[in-house]
Simulated scan of single mutants.
Amino acid sequence: MRVRDSVVVITGASSGIGRVTALAFARKGCAVVLAARREKALRAVARECERHRGARALAVPTDVTDGRAVDDLARRATERFGRVDVWVDAAAVTVFAPFQEVPLDDFRRVLDVNVMGYVHGARAALRVMREQGRGTLVNVSSIVGVVTQPYTHAYGMSKHAVRALGSSLRQELPLDGAEDVHVCTVLPATIDTPLFEHAANYTGRKAVAMPPVHSPERVARTVVRLVRTPRREVVVGPMGRSMVLQSRITSGTVEGMMAHQAHRTHLSREEPAPPSHGNLHAPAPGAGAAHGGWGGRRRTAVRRLATATLLAGAAAGLAHRAGAR
């Protein structure tokens, strides 16, 4: 499908991957419909999008956990622009905590945003796309939808669910004669976004981006390419691709490696953090941001080296223990 002049709806558009994806489509001359809870941030993104020649933007404050609000988002998009060519579900929240210490209200909220938010988005998008006879739904999952990690149980569960939703829809749509409606799932590795700053946290340690860290622009480019050439699932980031591939061969070893890496590098050893609900129940203040400050070539290179060393050490340790048995 041609990207230019497409009408694109994006949830989670106030920050991170959603925000950068909106800008990527705006640069292609698309009409972008921006959805998130923060109206001030959405207005800022809309102004930035409209600076690109030919781009049009509509900001629609939306809580994706509210199915009626998401239906209204689709209605406003079609009333304003006549159709929906692409729908990108990118809204996500997370909580860091040992399993027994996660407040159940926070656990449910992560699942409500990251799973039911995508369900609401898919229902609204596919209703329009089936009528049109064409369209592309892109769901942003994560490599933790394949290789889970400790301390983010609800997030990992949600990202597995997003993959399952995409797979089921891809099976069902052709059976209903909707061969030109595509469902794609994107699985990013660690991305430089404000997610970690906004996360709920009950570990006592500051949540940091687990290396290696990739730019949200990398994910946005992948999403744009999927509109031109739809694919079932795409992993973003070479380390992520390596771990996903290896998990299919030696799942136990990769599970252990991820446990070591998350414990040592996902939570700061130097910076404590007080208990916090993060942005789960109320949006973060301010105009939003695309990046979280975890990028930079030198920092990324150092983190990649540290990660490779850590993974090699973890693999060796696991192999030694396996041999000892």
Rank of each mutant, 00 (worst) to 15 (best):
S142N: 13
P98T: 10
G133R: 13
V45G: 00
E39A: 14
D180E: 11
F107V: 09
R127W: 07
N201E: 14
P230Y: 15
G240E: 01
R47P: 01
T300K: 11
G18I: 03
D192Y: 14
R241I: 04
P272V: 08
L226Y: 02
Q261A: 14
M116Q: 11
P103H: 09
W294M: 06
R53Q: 09
A207T: 04
W87H: 01
R53H: 10
A306K: 03
A289W: 04
A199F: 07
D106A: 15
R218I: 13
V115D: 00
R303P: 00
V86N: 04
V110H: 02
H182P: 02
A124C: 09
Y155R: 04
V138R: 09
A91Q: 09
R241V: 06
V146M: 11
V140A: 04
R109D: 05
V183K: 07
P98E: 12
R205M: 15
T11N: 10
G252C: 05
R231H: 14
D5H: 15
E255D: 11
V236Q: 10
H182S: 08
V64Y: 01
V254P: 00
H291Y: 12
V60T: 00
L280C: 02
S242F: 15
R298P: 02
V186C: 11
L311K: 01
P275D: 10
N139Y: 04
G16C: 08
M239V: 15
G278H: 07
R83Q: 08
L173T: 03
T21Y: 11
D66G: 05
I249D: 02
R325A: 15
L111G: 05
T203D: 11
R231S: 12
R2L: 10
G278Y: 03
R51W: 03
K28W: 09
A69F: 00
R321Y: 12
R231E: 13
R43E: 10
T300H: 11
V102A: 12
G82N: 01
A273Y: 11
A314L: 14
R163K: 08
A124F: 00
P230K: 14
T253P: 00
H281E: 07
S167D: 09
R109S: 06
A124G: 04
T229N: 15
V102N: 12
L137S: 07
W294V: 06
C49N: 07
A220E: 03
T185G: 08
D66T: 06
I10T: 03
S15F: 09
G135C: 09
M258H: 01
E179D: 12
L305S: 14
S142F: 07
P103Q: 10
G177Y: 02
R163T: 05
F99Y: 14
G117D: 02
L165H: 07
Q132N: 09
G156H: 07
T65F: 06
R27K: 13
T193P: 01
V93M: 01
N114L: 06
P150E: 05
V146W: 13
A26L: 06
T62A: 02
L42A: 04
G237K: 13
G237M: 08
P283S: 13
R123L: 13
V45I: 06
L195N: 02
P61M: 06
E172H: 07
G313Q: 08
V140F: 12
A189R: 08
